[in-house]
Design a protein around this nucleic acid. Structure first.
Lengths: 153, 153
DNA sequence: CGATGAATTGGTAAAATATCCCAATATTGG
DNA sequence: CCAATATTGGGATATTTTACCAATTCATCG
């Protein structure tokens, strides 16, 4: 796996901000002509450094006014229990992020919902119906101060 | 602000997954021809429903092996204190997410770093140097079970 | 230093795609 | 049922991506 040089990193920084740049614009910004710039981007895709291209959507515009962080402890932490939990979580579109954590909780989830009652529905119909959950604790976000997808390069 | 109909929502769901679909492919999938599909996408952009187009990058490929959630309490919670904190946080690339929270902490941050020592450097050189912070508590993520940018439509 | 080979670059042309215009169709309100 | 409005579909044009090949740069070794 060849290292990423300064130009690769600049390409990544730019595409993480705006993937609709044309190859010409991107090439100008990184100081290359179109051909080598294009080849670098393709290589970054093939190597799995660039994983996908997506559109981002405004949460408010979709009417998703509630963001919740949920701390979860499982009754047991055997691999089988963890896998079962991970599989269930992954199916649900409301769960945007889920992390296996150190410390006194097992999982931390970020969930979005239209309002409190639909969040309640998510809890009642989905999360609390899972087996093997010892405790659930919800923390509500009042506002999103920062949300970025761009990893530091 | 006109409502989003079923086709709009399908377009959003698809573009949140893959923004490199051609208009022809997108049109086929939503059951329209290219022209109206294209016009709908442009309208979604103009209305601010689609906010941007970006490339996503593999965290491991960049060598960012550490993900941390940080709970922060401020000494005071006046608007001015909150704004000052928000401005500082927003400048730092390591901070991918920051939420103002209900409950016993004021902020929840998600931070990425290459390793523990660079996380330590972030704490020492940046976060702990901010005025007005009453407490900082780090929780480490062992693994990312799910990470999605696609909001449910 | 200079020569050799490998890797990277840049220009050009062809193919694919986005974008715009206008006529045709469908939808809404009276 | 009709008129007015909004939405759709097709085709022409402009833009962009992509592939190819020669030229340049870079690193290595004698």
């Amino acid at each position: 796996m060849p290292e990423l040089d300064a130009i690769d990193r600049k390409i990544l920084a730019l595409l993480q901000t705006d993937s609709r740049l044309t190859m010409q614009e991107l090439a100008d910004k990184v100081g290359l002509s179109v051909s080598p710039c294009h080849r670098r981007v393709k290589l970054l895709e093939e190597r799995g450094v660039i994983t996908r291209y997506i559109a981002t959507v405004d949460q408010k515009a979709l009417g998703l006014h509630v963001s919740v962080f949920i701390s979860i402890k499982l009754a047991r932490q055997k691999e089988e229990d963890l896998n079962r939990f991970a599989r269930a979580i992954s199916k649900w579109d409301e769960v945007l992020e889920c992390y296996l954590m150190t410390g006194n909780r097992d999982y931390l989830l970020r969930v979005v919902a239209a309002d409190l009652s639909s969040y309640e529905a998510f809890l009642k119909n989905k999360l609390t119906r899972l087996d093997g959950i010892a405790s659930i604790e919800s923390s509500f976000a009042l506002s999103q101060v920062k949300y970025s997808i761009a990893l530091p390069v």
